[in-house]
């Protein structure tokens, strides 16, 4: 009985070790791309909590990333806050935004919720432009002028390691991604996670079991948005630049694609989803460069994936496990 969690822990440690040593084996450019995988992993973990576990669709998570990204950028450029210190603040601000959005959104479900969340994704770029004095309007916020707040001026000394900008972003992103992943696992394995899934599976049975739908959904929105905020802040720090087009409507759609590829309602495939978001468009471009072709390749691959792996990568992992697992005796009480 105790062997299963031990093996999961060993696997997790091995994967974390791979993440740790990876930059030593790849060039700077690749390390930067893998940093973005870590950033998207943060966002996907959050989105999967909301959509996969609590069953509340969001077509607007790009807007929450925008709030996190702008919070970080404005703190750095206007207040001289160091990059890493902006992240907790971005998490708090975006988490509150998620709760505020969740309060009315908790009354909506299905298609109506999809539309409401889509609306914030659509409205975000225009809203950012509108508050020009605060957000820099269409021009955005450029962080290149403040290298002293990040690692782009001089390499960062950390535990005897010397980290240049790309490596710094890589380790920062993955540290937060792994911490966020473990935190999600802790939240989801217990009472709160069960409440999320109960609401997803049957609202009336959940309510009759004493679960408040509003409270549960608002909590899911808050937690999920907080993750998106962290991802947005990392995104801003990594690109050293944000403008309204950094967080377009398509970003929200890609995030949703990411959790579908990962597997809705499971944490196991999330890295694959993040890899898909970062590398699939690049790979699609190498297949054919004729106009529009990469989109067709991307769409085609997506359709095939959804058909072949309806449960996403997590579903594939689960099937593989079922095949290899020896028949167990009755579990001891």
């Amino acid at each position: 009985m105790r062997r299963e969690p031990l093996r999961a822990l060993a696997l997790f440690a091995a994967l974390a070790a791979v993440v740790f040593v990876l930059p030593a084996f790849v060039n700077d450019f690749r390390a930067q791309q893998f940093a973005y995988v870590g950033i998207y992993l943060v966002a996907l973990t959050g989105l999967n909590i909301l959509t996969g576990y609590a069953g509340q669709i969001s077509l607007g998570h790009g807007a929450f990333m925008a709030i996190g990204g702008y919070t970080a950028s404005i703190l750095m450029i206007d207040h001289g806050v160091r990059d890493i210190a902006t992240i907790p603040l971005a998490i708090i601000v975006t988490g509150i935004a998620g709760v505020l959005f969740g309060l009315p959104a908790a009354r909506l479900s299905g298609l109506y919720l999809a539309l409401a969340t889509f609306a914030i994704a659509v409205a975000a770029p225009a809203t950012i432009k509108r508050f020009e004095g605060f957000t820099g309007g269409g021009t955005g916020v450029n962080l290149f002028g403040i290298p002293e707040l990040t690692a782009s001026d001089a390499p960062l000394q950390l535990f005897g390691f010397e980290l240049d900008f790309n490596n710094w972003i890589y380790y920062l992103s993955w540290t937060i991604a792994i911490a966020g992943y473990v935190l999600a696992w802790l939240i989801l394995r217990g009472r709160t996670g069960r409440a999320f899934r109960a609401v997803r599976d049957s609202e009336i049975a959940a309510v009759s079991s004493g679960i408040s739908l509003t409270r549960t959904k608002v909590l899911a929105f808050g937690i999920s948005a907080a993750y998106a905020g962290a991802a947005g802040a990392l995104f801003a720090v990594a690109t050293a630049f944000v403008n309204p087009d950094t967080f377009p409507v398509t970003l929200s759609i890609f995030l949703l694609v990411g959790i579908v590829v990962s597997g809705i309602g499971s944490l196991q495939g999330l890295v694959a989803g993040a890899v898909f978001i970062v590398f699939m468009p690049l790979w699609a471009q190498t297949v054919s460069k004729s106009p529009g072709a990469p989109f067709v390749v991307y769409g085609g691959v997506l359709i095939v994936l959804v058909l072949v792996l309806p449960g996403g990568v997590a579903g594939l992992i689960a099937s593989a496990r079922r095949l290899t697992r020896r028949r167990q005796d009755f579990p001891k009480p």
């Binding site: 009472r191 409440a195 599976d201 009336i204 959940a206 004493g210």
Partner: peptide, 29 residues
């Protein structure tokens, strides 16, 4: 959602289980 707290629990005519959960998890909820 406060009815359970008052001490009233129910079952449903057309079963309303949490379908993605194990039997044990259903009882835990």
């Amino acid at each position: 959602h406060r009815i359970a707290e008052h001490g009233i629990a129910r079952t449903f005519q057309n079963v309303n289980l949490f379908t993605s959960m194990s039997v044990l998890e259903n009882v835990l909820v």
